[in-house]
Design a protein around this nucleic acid. Structure first.
Length: 534
RNA sequence: GCCCUCGUAGCUCAGUUGGAUAGAGCGACCGCCUCCUAAGCGGUAGGCCACAGGUUCAAUUCCUGUCGAGGGCACCA
């Protein structure tokens, strides 16, 4: 790797000049401005004070030393600004990148092992089993699944989990609503008003328990829609099963015996104020019924028993529960830092420029199914992953559905389709990509070609950062950039044409293959398909 | 009142655990099709990175405060 080679060179230079190396590793970065070279380091700035030297002078001495030593791929070493050392490299370093990408392939390239097999449980969506998955769940679904894919790629053992809240008052209302509709009546006060209740009620056989039947019906529906969205869970975990197994009672008793739960005013409370909460929280109401919190604690405890780390993807309306859940875990002796909660900010949906209000009970939801029908699963997923989950998002369905240039998904998929267009054209002409080892990669010196390779060279870092920061949208940004560089290459550098020599055509086919690998990996991480033709 | 997130080009948003002259897409304007899809490519215009302090050789980035937007502070889930 070029970065390691350069870092080793810089370290050698520091030692030669008698400057103590920094405790941290040598920082090599990619300058934002291309005029500042291909790679750059700030060691002179960072260690000037410690060495008691002027940063510019130190940089100059280091640069002189580095320039007098042969370093692979290095063309020149310069100093600039307050004391940066900039490396200008020969195109050969990018040819090495090409080899790495093609040899690594879709499975091997940009797959840093950051997790060392850590078992990570990612829980997301967890919509109530009282109706279909709606558009409001889709951001969490996209984020959670992409995050799971990122973690898998970076050496984690991932479980995708869906928690089913199949207990409590909402379920009762759901069952009553189904029964009422089946009897041709209006749902009760506080019941569910959606059209799907009417549809499902008409399917419901006589003599079944509406709650149990409805729950199965809802879960079946959720699985189907999420599946068509590219999201498949490893485990659907029922809240009821915690009652049946006695896990809730066990958890409650343990909380009591540890003294972090207590009884007062006829209810049982969690002493969450000991862990920074505003007030203590009720676990068991005075009527004997559990709040949502106690089963949730039992559930997280169960997850901890089979995972090294938990990640929950919750909507912004749940952020207030983070402290109390962490408090509960800490009080049970778990490491609360191993419970990460990802909060997705809300999505404002626009239809024809008008805001759409989502209310499940009033029945004015837009189902995820409708979104997929309208814009397609690919466009929907990529759109949700366009931005950081920390930002509020506005999605105009008409824009997402448009097949114009304002739609990133077409731009990116077009790049992939063009790759296969080239392959088709090459096959017609009888041109076949030869063995990589025989390719004349030195012929790849066109700026457009180098841009594609530069973009690919950044991908392993992008994957690592995206995984570390739990930020799948970084993959989206990168994929769009790679697609952009590829469109430029496609426009200016023909692969199959009369005036392209066979050796160059072959080298370009290798580059196209590298781009294909990069795009496939990126799109797969996003859960977006990579069609060979549009 | 307290807690969380956000405030960057006309619009939608990026910005690598602090780096050099802050980027992309759309929209506007100007160019490019005898050749692998012009669903594309190139160029121009457009910025007090909300505001004020602080830390630092260096702040859009970290800290504090102010203003503005959204969400949350239940014996509902």
């Amino acid at each position: 790797m070029i970065r390691d080679d350069l870092a080793a060179g810089v370290l050698g230079a520091l030692e030669a000049l008698g400057v103590d190396p920094l405790p941290e590793s040598i920082q090599l970065e990619r300058p934002a401005n291309r005029e500042h070279g291909d790679w750059s380091t700030n060691v002179a700035l960072a260690s000037a004070k410690r060495a008691g030297r002027n940063p510019r002078e130190l940089a100059q001495e280091l640069a002189t030393y580095l320039a007098s030593n042969e370093l692979a791929h290095v063309d020149s070493v310069e100093i600039a600004g307050p004391g940066f050392i900039n490396f200008r490299l020969k195109p050969t370093w990018l040819h090495d990148v090409l080899v790495e990408v093609v040899q690594g392939g879709a499975d091997g390239y940009a797959a840093p092992d950051l997790g060392a097999g850590e078992r990570v449980n990612v829980e997301f969506v967890s919509a109530n089993p009282t109706g279909p998955v709606h558009a409001g769940h889709a951001r969490g679904a996209s984020h959670g699944d992409s995050l799971a894919r990122l973690l898998e790629r970076t050496g984690h053992q991932v479980t995708r989990e869906f928690y089913i809240n199949d207990r409590g008052v909402q379920m009762a209302r759901f069952g009553e609503s189904l029964a009422a509709r089946k009897a041709g009546e209006e749902p009760p006060e506080e019941g569910y008003l959606g059209q799907y209740i009417v549809d499902w009620a008409s399917e419901m056989p006589d003599g079944v328990d509406p709650v149990e039947w409805g729950k199965q019906r809802a879960i079946e529906d959720q699985k189907e829609v999420l599946g068509s969205f590219g999201v498949v869970f490893d485990r659907w975990f029922s809240e009821m099963s915690l009652v049946d197994s006695g896990a809730i009672t066990t958890t409650l008793n343990e909380l009591l015996s540890r003294g972090v739960a207590y009884e007062a005013d006829g209810a049982t409370w969690l002493r969450s104020t000991d862990f920074g909460d505003d007030k203590d929280r009720v676990l068991v109401k005075s009527d004997g019924e559990y709040t949502y919190l106690l089963p949730d604690i039992a559930y997280h405890r169960d997850k901890f028993s089979r995972s090294d780390r938990l990640i929950n993807v919750w909507g912004a309306d749940h952020h207030g529960y983070i402290v109390r859940m962490k408090a509960a875990m800490a009080s049970l002796g778990e490491d609360a830092d191993k419970l990460e909660v990802e909060i997705t900010q809300l999505v404002d949906l626009l239809k024809d420029g008008e805001p759409v209000r989502l209310s499940k009970r009033a029945g004015t939801v837009i189902e995820l199914r409708d979104v997929i029908d309208e814009v397609g699963a690919d466009a929907a997923r990529l759109t949700y992953l366009l931005q950081s989950i920390d930002s509020r998002q506005t999605i105009d369905l008409a824009e997402v559905a448009s097949q114009g240039m304002d739609n990133p998904v077409f731009y990116v998929q077009m790049a992939h389709a063009r790759i296969h267009g080239i392959a088709r054209k090459a096959a017609e002409t009888g041109i076949v990509r030869g063995p990589l080892a025989d390719a004349s990669l030195a012929l790849l010196v066109h700026e457009r070609e180098l841009e594609v390779l530069r973009s690919l060279s950044e991908f392993p870092d992008v994957v690592a950062i995206a995984a570390r920061d739990r930020a799948p949208h970084r993959i989206t940004t990168w994929v769009r950039e790679l697609a952009g560089t590829f469109h430029g290459f496609y426009h200016d550098c023909y692969v199959v044409a009369d005036d392209v020599a066979p050796e160059l055509a072959d080298a370009r086919l290798q580059l196209v293959e590298a781009a294909r690998v990069g795009l496939s990996i990126g799109l797969d991480l996003l859960g977006v398909s990579a069609p060979e033709q549009l």
